[in-house]
């Protein structure tokens, strides 16, 4: 399956990653190789096999509705590049 530069650019945009033309070229080749592996997988006959939604044979892992201590505010905000009062500060985004 060929990967067009447009598709790669689109995927990068969705992930908010800015790429130089050189990086686009390099990643395009790498992703192409990965997609090649996926291609091999898609040739496996999976007729009659239930889709896997989880790799472990686990189900119904639940917890009771009991409150636990949250983080102290100093810890929560410790790595914030910018803060004000008890808030994280981010560039203004209004949709």
């Amino acid at each position: 399956m060929a990967l067009s530069p447009e598709t790669l650019k689109y995927v990068a945009d969705l992930s908010r990653i800015e790429l130089t033309p050189q990086e686009l070229e390099k990643l395009s080749q790498q992703l192409q190789t990965i997609l090649g592996f996926i291609d091999q997988l898609s040739r496996v006959d999976i007729a009659g096999i239930e889709p896997t939604s989880h790799i472990l044979q686990l189900s119904n892992v639940l917890r009771e509705d009991n409150p636990k201590a949250s983080l102290p505010i100093e810890k929560t905000l410790a790595n914030a590049p910018q803060k004000k009062d008890n808030f994280f500060v981010v560039p203004k985004v209004i949709e």
Binding site: K84, F87, F88, V89, V90, K92, V93, I94
Partner: peptide, 12 residues
Amino acid sequence: LIHEDNFSLVDF
């Protein structure tokens, strides 16, 4: 989100 003049505040 609380929007101020030049930035936004986030409460999680």
